[in-house]
Amino acid sequence: MVRLVAIVLVLGACSSVELAAPRIRHRLGPAAGRPVKRLVALPATCGTLETVVVRQASPSAERVPAERVAAECSGVAVAGIDQIVRAAFDFSGFEVIDAERVNAVTATHHEVEQRQQSWGNRTTTQTGARFDDATPFEQADILRELRVDAVLTTRVWVGAGVGIGGRRSVSVQLRLAAASDRVLVWAHRCDLEVGGLMATDDVAIERATRCAVKGLHPR
């Protein structure tokens, strides 16, 4: 058993030996000359071709064979990407507005608190619409109202795993487009390979995101 674990560990480590070096690419768009100070950051979108092994729970005690099914990017990882990217932009001197925090209309807030001596419960209901709930016309109005110069989009892609170590490529792309006409200001992208037993999708995505934000220059 110990030998088997050792072999698996060695093979898992082997798969990361010949990983391709991170490839960072930068593209300037037609709007590259426009000044960008304030921007709205949209939530990252992510797609993965990774698969995970699942074993269905059987009501009888019979052993059910494991099945490989398509995985999807975890919400936590995507939220983490947003945090890393926005923090990097903030630090570089941009004024970043989180799209999730922009209300398209004024929300209604209803709060009910019930108490019995030292314990109780509170129910809060908030109804409204955010930036991403609005139509393109309304979004354009909101962007004008916020006086933002650009919109930041983040796309993440994880390729299919190859071999015992699950070697795969991960790409993160940041794209800054002018808020007024959506013309490209610049796009920044990092492609890297990950593999090995410890390289989970979340770790891979984080590494690629940190690599993608490396090229941001302080303003």
Binding site: A104, V105, E113, R115, S118, W119, G120, N121, R122, T123, T124, T125, Q126, T127, G128, A129, R130, D133, A134, T135, E138
Partner: peptide, 14 residues
């Protein structure tokens, strides 16, 4: 058309 979102939060107070 604009959509609406309703967030309901329940908290237990001590």
């Amino acid at each position: 058309e604009m959509r609406r979102r309703t967030t309901e939060t329940h908290e237990q107070l001590t």
